[in-house]
């Protein structure tokens, strides 16, 4: 079965991409940058952070570029006053949700949220911040989870499930009380099934999961999932 192509417009530029490509990848292939956060190449799109939202001409709705496939004739808008406003809102809400103090964070200067705040000009947060005080779990021999810094992007859950294939990470509770849990909500050190592969720390966009006494700039590897998949599919 041959795969056809789709022609559409992104920010007024006509582009042609393979059928079924997401808006995000279609844009990327044509040098148009759309900010992302929960998205990670190689993992199932989650569509939760909303930073990659784009407008599509003719509908009042916004669409997550990471999870929306292209359609023939679609006119995508990736930059507008409204999108800028809303992307800033995403970052502000994430910063206000838990304890984010860059100056004392392991991920300082290696953090995707920090970087986005800078790029989008989020020079302050209009909401009162929450100062959470979840206990830090450092019971594992090398991996640490600090849920106060978690932005619930679920990259760790997805990489553990889809790439490492163990699925020891998941979510408990819902809404603002959502938390990443290990195994059946155990201490990390008590997990029998964690293979200690460290992929979760590699993909964590912030400083929520990290390797003890390792600079996060060294741990991080945004391309791990994509890379492993590409080797597997050879």
């Amino acid at each position: 079965m041959s795969i056809g192509t789709t022609t559409l417009k992104i920010d007024g530029i006509e582009v042609t991409v393979p059928e079924g490509t997401t808006i995000l990848n279609a844009a990327k292939a044509n040098g148009i940058n759309i900010p992302t956060l929960c998205y990670l190449e190689g993992l199932t799109p989650w569509g939760g952070c909303r930073i990659c939202m784009v407008e599509i001409h003719g509908t009042p709705k916004l669409f997550p570029a990471c999870a929306t496939p292209v359609n023939t004739g679609m006119e995508v808008i990736t930059q507008s006053e409204k999108l800028r406003e809303y992307r800033k809102m995403v970052v502000q809400l994430l910063l206000s949700e838990r304890t984010h103090v860059c100056s004392v964070c392991v991920a300082n200067n290696a953090c995707e949220l920090q970087k986005l705040a800078d790029e989008l000009g989020v020079d302050h947060v209009m909401f009162e911040r929450n100062w959470t005080s979840q206990e830090i779990d450092s019971t594992h021999k090398s991996l640490v989870i600090d849920r106060n810094r978690c932005i619930l992007c679920t990259r760790c859950i997805r990489v553990c499930d889809e790439i490492e294939g163990v699925h020891i990470l998941d979510l408990k509770n819902r809404g603002k009380d959502s938390q990443i849990i290990i195994d059946l909500d155990q201490k990390w050190g008590d997990s029998d099934y964690c293979t200690s592969c460290g992929k979760c720390a590699k993909v964590c966009p912030v400083g929520a999961i990290y390797v003890e006494s390792e600079a996060l700039s060294e741990t991080k590897d945004k391309h791990i999932a994509e890379f492993i998949l590409s080797r597997r599919n050879r």
Partner: peptide, 20 residues
């Protein structure tokens, strides 16, 4: 706020701020 599943940022964090 109680019923939000927590997957997406606007509903999870946005509604919580509105509540505050």
């Amino acid at each position: 706020v109680e019923e939000s599943c927590g997957r997406c940022n606007p509903c999870r964090a946005g509604l919580a701020r509105v509540k505050e």
